[in-house]
């Protein structure tokens, strides 16, 4: 075990060196997508619970379901056509390099981040909604209501802390997807990340590179799921403070 990933068969370049650059790009994209998607999903989930079976709930459900049902490459091209080509707000190709400022970089990745957000939003939002609705059946929610708290106070103070474990689980799964599952988006937007690197080398039958990518993707996946389990333990006082 040396951590040396070897050299690529096709170019003879060190895999570690080229993968580091690619990985940091992928993480940059994933982190920005997560920063927008996770709070938005949880907020929409809480909103859906608060107005359960009324129009805000139905609207949120319909929009998020539609966005998860349409294939991401299609959303990608449609957005590219509308926003980049027609409106000319953001560039259609998400090329970034070290010479760009943060603002320029963000402008470049605006479209892929939007698509990724739309893809992962529905899953997290629906899980948040389901987990909190499940907790809302508990007797202590009735106690909270009988204390004269308003709807949001009940949901936020009393329901949410008990729904953290399932929510964190599904959030982590989606974060892993943001890192691991971006292959399609990176190809669509020609983004210089891990996904494109992987696809390039799969087409060239460059096994060591594919192995290295698989290794890193697996590590990310396991790492994030472990964080989910740890957070679940920390959020449960029964596990934190045994009798």
């Amino acid at each position: 075990m040396t951590g040396d990933l070897g050299t690529a068969l096709t170019s003879g370049a060190y895999i570690t060196a080229s993968i580091t650059k690619r990985l940091s790009n992928t993480l940059f994209l994933a982190v920005w997508a997560a920063i927008i998607a996770v709070p938005l999903a949880i907020f929409l989930g809480l909103l859906a619970v608060r107005f359960k079976d009324r129009w805000p709930d139905k609207l949120i459900s319909a929009v998020t379901l539609a966005s998860i049902s349409i294939p991401e490459f299609l959303i990608g091209y449609v957005l590219m056509y509308l926003i980049a080509v027609k409106l000319r707000w953001f560039p259609s190709v998400a090329m970034i390099n070290d010479g760009m400022s943060l603002g320029e970089k963000l402008s470049a990745i605006a479209l892929p981040v939007t698509v990724l957000t739309l893809v992962v939003l529905a899953h997290m939002m629906r899980m948040t909604r389901a987990a909190i609705l499940n907790v809302m059946q508990s007797a202590y929610i009735e106690t909270a209501e009988l204390k004269g708290l308003n709807g949001f106070q009940v949901i936020f103070r009393h329901a949410f802390p008990n729904a953290i474990a399932p929510i964190v689980n599904v959030v982590m799964l989606n974060l892993a997807y943001l890192v691991v599952g971006v292959v399609v988006i990176e190809v669509v937007f020609v983004y210089p990340g891990m996904g494109q690197y992987l696809v390039d080398h799969v087409s060239k039958r460059d096994v060591p590179v594919v192995q290295a990518c698989g290794l890193i993707f697996a590590a990310v996946y396991i790492g994030l799921n472990m964080i989910a389990d740890i957070v679940a333990i920390l959020s449960n006082p029964r596990l934190r403070h045994p009798k």
Partner: peptide, 15 residues
């Protein structure tokens, strides 16, 4: 105010 039959269920386990 209200005192319920099952205090065990009526207290929020996370607080």
């Amino acid at each position: 105010t209200y005192v319920s039959q099952s205090a065990a269920g009526s207290f929020n386990p996370a607080k």
